[in-house]
Every structure is written in structure tokens, then in C-alpha cells.
Nucleic acid binder design. Structure first.
Length: 319
RNA sequence: AGGGGUAUGGUGUAAUGGUAACACGUGGGUCUCCAAAACCUUUGUUCUGGGUUCGAGUCCUAGUGCCCCUG
């Protein structure tokens, strides 16, 4: 079944520091569309420098959504993102405009394209706390995995013993629903919209250079002060938002427990790793148009993609 | 210039004369409500030339690079 134009969304993604923001604003300005942020950390208020969040000045009048929609000490989730983002998209479409999703969080993209099977089994803090306590114990990870082996052998078989994060989630779902994680009913099989995806990329070493340069700029812009301000205002260092790159590395530094050199090295290292993981994710993502962000025709290719739907190969391989 | 020391993956280190190891990095991957998270995994090394020895990263020797001391 063909979807109507109003049911199509454009997604510009790519690793951190690949130039998504600038290109997206240029594109949105030229074609009068609205941007929906697809970034798991730019959703937090007061986290601006470390998340490289586009500021009102650089948006050049292009409406942005899903930015600053949560407080740093709030917990957020993919499911919530999916729900809120789809609302934004619906709203944009209702006004007769196109939505351009921009961001590097692959998991969020997948949630939109392939809706969560366990859509109605949300997190249970009590169960998690209980199971996480076990995970910390001597041999606890093995014990959790053993528990899952009993409750849901299929899922246990595909999860590594050390992957207690997912082992716990699987146990949580089993306990909450009484049905094994692997046998949860698929609630929603079809995504609400069709997504036309373009991914920015470039030579790895050049990307890493850009990453490092950007971090130098972040420090110069006052990253340390931003982190200090968050901590001083009562945001816990354990908060989910503070686990973000650029924040978790800065906490020891701001507290005087790490030198600048150590912090700088660690931040750059973690960001490189992150960029690599983002690329890995996108390689797995089906139907993606890859665009070398440093090529002279990068913008033209994106524009062509946006106008003609190049890369929209949902039927399989392109002709 | 003289004396001493040192040389092991990209980096930092380990190895009673007996299969060269560990950490970090690098590369690849996983992902269905914490995802900028969490987890899995690969790769690659004895400075060069001689010598001793069944066998040399290890001992001897020369060269080269680096470090320290003296002048």
C-alpha cells in the first residue's frame, strides 16, 4: 500500500559532529519544513553546550520540536519519545507542512519505524531496583541470567550473562505480564509513518578530528560551568541525563577529582566511541541514503533526496 | 667527548634461557521502555647485524635511537 505524502517523514541522521544541524536548517529554510529533534539528550532543558543543541539564533526561524521537553532529573524513555514525536509530526502535517527529523539516536529511529512490541509494559522502578541490587552482588549477574533461563529460556539464550541491563528488562516484563519476554504479543506491527532516511558520513579520521575540535569549542564555551550549574541546582550525578557524554566525564572534573587532561582525553575518547556506534547502528538500518557530508555536492544530494524522495526504497533495492 | 642505563603491538607495561602476555587504543558487532546507556568481539609486538645455545625478548658483541651523569 502506498502511503500518502502526508504520511511520509524525512529523517536526517548521522554520527555526532557530522554536520546534521547546519544542513538541516539550511534544508528546512529552503523548503519551509519543521524540524523534529531525534536526539536522546537534546530533549533535556539546561543541557545546551554538551549536547550541541541548536540555539534559537542558529535556527534562523525554523521551528524545532522535541527540544527542551524534559528536565535533567526526569527520566525519559524511547516509548515516551515515540509517542511525543509522533504527536509533533501529526501536528506538523495537520498544518500542511513536512516534518524533518534530525538527530543521531538510532534507537529512537527504530522505535518510530518498527514500533515497540512491548508497548504497554513500562518500566517498574521497584522491580528494577530489586534486580539491580542482585546484579551488583558477587555472581549476581549469573544468578539473574539463571532466573531468566527458567522464566524465558529463549531470551536467556540470546542475552550475554554480563548484559544485565537487558536480562533485567526481560525479567521485568515476564514478571509484570506473566508471559515470557520472547512471547509477548506484537501489539503494533505497522509504523504510523513512512520514513525516508538519509545518513551523513565521512572519512573516519576526519570525523574524529571534527569531534575533537568540537569538544575544544565546548570547553571554551563553558561546558564545565554548565555541568557545575546543573549539579549546584540539585541535579543528581546519578540522573539519567547526567550519564550523557560531556556530562558524566565532567562531574569528577567539576568536583576537583580529575585533571583537565584526564577529562579532555576521556571525553574525546567516549565521543569517538559513540560516533562509531552510531555508524554501526545506521549500517544495520534498512533503506538509508548515505551522504558524504564533506563532499561538495552534499547539500545538493540532500535536497534532491528531500524533493524527490531518493533513498525512499521501502520496496527493497532501488531500480 | 667520556661514563652509565634503556630498547617488547599505536601507547603504557609483563614474561626462572623453553608456545611472547596484560591494559588502553584501533577495527567489527549487538540492541524492542535507562540508548550520548549497556553489552559482545577482533587485530597487532621482541630496534638492526653478528655470536653462544638443542632453544634467545632474556646471555655476549657491534651498530643505531632515546634517557641520565660528568666535562
Amino acid at each position: 500500500m502506498e502511503k500518502k505524502d502526508q504520511e511520509i517523514c524525512w529523517v536526517l541522521t548521522g554520527p555526532t559532529a557530522s554536520g546534521k544541524t547546519a544542513l538541516s536548517i539550511r534544508l528546512a529554510k529552503a523548503h519551509d519544513c519543521e524540524v523534529v529533534c531525534m536526539d536522546s539528550m537534546q530533549i533535556y532543558r539546561r543541557m545546551n553546550i554538551g549536547t550541541a543543541k541548536p540555539m534559537p539564533e542558529e535556527m534562523e526561524g525554523v521551528p524545532h520540536h522535541m527540544i527542551d521537553v524534559a528536565d535533567p532529573d526526569e527520566s525519559f524513555s524511547v516509548a515516551r519519545y515515540q509517542e511525543m514525536a509522533e504527536e509533533c509530526i501529526a501536528d506538523i502535517h495537520a498544518r500542511g507542512k513536512r516534518a524533518l527529523l534530525v538527530g543521531g539516536t538510532g534507537f529512537y529511529l527504530r522505535a518510530l519505524r518498527q514500533p515497540m512490541a512491548m508497548g504497554d509494559v513500562s518500566a517498574d522502578e521497584r522491580i528494577r531496583a530489586e534486580l539491580e541490587a542482585i546484579a551488583i552482588e558477587e555472581g549476581g549477574k549469573q544468578r539473574l541470567h539463571d532466573m531468566l533461563e527458567v522464566a524465558d529460556p529463549v531470551t536467556a539464550a540470546r542475552l550475554h550473562v554480563n548484559d544485565s541491563r537487558r536480562v533485567i528488562r526481560a525479567l521485568e516484563v515476564c514478571r509484570l505480564t506473566g508471559v515470557p519476554f520472547s512471547q509477548q504479543p506484537q501489539l503494533q506491527t505497522e509504523s504510523r509513518y513512512q520514513y525516508c532516511v538519509a545518513t551523513l558520513t565521512m572519512d573516519r579520521s576526519l570525523l574524529y578530528q571534527r569531534v575533537e575540535k568540537r569538544i575544544d569549542v565546548m570547553f571554551a564555551q563553558g561546558l564545565a560551568d554548565e555541568v557545575r550549574g546543573l549539579l549546584d541546582s540539585g541535579v543528581s550525578a546519578d540522573a539519567q541525563a547526567m550519564k550523557a557524554i560531556g556530562y558524566k566525564e565532567l562531574v569528577p572534573f567539576v568536583r576537583g577529582e580529575a585533571t583537565f587532561e584526564e577529562t579532555d582525553y576521556l571525553l574525546k575518547l567516549n565521543t569517538r566511541h559513540y560516533a562509531k556506534r552510531q555508524l554501526t547502528w545506521m549500517r544495520r538500518e534498512p533503506d538509508v541514503l548515505w551522504v558524504n557530508a564533506l563532499a561538495p555536492d552534499a547539500y545538493d544530494r540532500l535536497e534532491n533526496w528531500y524533493v524527490n524522495g531518493v533513498g525512499d526504497v521501502s520496496k527493497g533495492e532501488e531500480a
